[in-house]
Design a binder for these strands. Structure first.
Lengths: 190, 190
DNA sequence: CAATATATGGAGACTGGCTCCGCTTTGTCA
DNA sequence: TGACAAAGCGGAGCCAGTCTCCATATATTG
């Protein structure tokens, strides 16, 4: 959970220390209070002033993207693994569940991400490529295999998964309830 | 858009005037700025102090429920009409679209309602009976007609519809895009 | 036209976001 | 090693929003 922003001049040692500490504290705060956690509070808990936090992370999304770092890398790995899975239909089912579960890492994450996806300039938007790309490739394979209707769009599927994760969060659902919701939405009403 | 709260002692004339004005202004503000509109601002625009607004409506949800009054009555009427519709499957389809559309009356409404539904003491929760009951009865009829799997639960269907309305809002979707999303979720992937 | 219950409004406490700028620390180079 | 410039810091302070408290004002009633 460190080493990044190696582009441009490397940060001064103290600055790098602060950066890392902020990300670490932020990850914990988001886990506890959701994506709406107070940024001033995070700065305080990291032992820096608000100014420092805002210079490193000009927006909440920037901090969120940094805090999410590892989790998103994991998701990328999962996507690659499922792209190899022989059974394309099974791979898609698994991907959907996995993605929905990831979206519950922090409270409020589905909303943060949905908003970010609307704004290409958001750092969170670029960080989410593992998600969007993953869905696109795995869905494409499932279509080729004839396991999915040809008119299903990747963007719609992403929106659907996000919205289910959101609903599950709103209801305080268990993992089982989330799966039930996913099954309802993916197999339809009849 | 007036006359209510006739239970208990009737409000003093000036109080009733203020009450009505607040509801009217609130409906407009929510329409413009979403359910998160500033309450102090609503009070100000209605020509009353914040204290007055908060005495009539102790929570945002209380005000929201009042502002939604007419719309919810309409929805109740729609539910009754669709309960008569001979084709139970068609009735359900229509209900789903109608409900999702109603949830877009104000920005942020799906979230406000989803939260309220978790809290039986919320005034918004009771106001939403037309929605929940409507889904329950229309779904039951569709099941009887064999148009829907028997294991589909009304609560899940409600959550699903709400989440689709939420997703459509996040993406700034047109009505057509919302319908596409609904079709995807109700007819499944294959 | 009191007397009284009812209702008002706005000052102000509090929370969180975010900025600005004088001060401190670090890295470098002689 | 010492000194200087660049890099970084932090917290005071402003803004917006929520919500409360209570001295004051107004409607109603006999």
């Amino acid at each position: 959970m460190s080493a990044d922003a190696a582009t441009k001049r490397p940060l001064r040692a103290d600055a790098q220390r602060n950066y890392d500490k902020i990300v670490q504290v932020a990850a914990q705060a988001f886990a506890e209070k959701g994506t709406g956690a107070s940024l001033d509070d995070i700065a305080c808990r990291a032992g820096v002033g608000p100014g420092t936090l805002y210079r490193h992370f000009p927006t909440r999304d920037a901090l969120l993207a940094a805090a999410l770092g590892d989790a998103l890398a994991d998701l990328g790995a999962t996507a690659r693994r499922l792209s190899e899975e022989p059974d394309a239909a099974k791979a898609l089912d698994e991907w959907i569940v996995e993605l929905a579960r990831h979206l519950r890492t922090y409270g409020g994450l589905p909303e943060s991400i949905a908003t970010a996806l609307q704004d290409p300039s958001s750092p969170l938007c670029s960080s989410c490529q593992p998600m969007t790309k993953g869905t696109a490739t795995i869905l494409a394979r499932a279509k080729e295999a004839g396991a999915v209707r040809a008119d299903v769009q990747a963007s719609d599927l992403n929106a659907l998964i996000g919205s289910l994760a959101w609903a599950a969060e709103q209801r305080g659902d268990s993992d089982a309830a989330l799966r039930r919701l996913i099954k309802l939405a993916t197999s339809g009403l009849r």
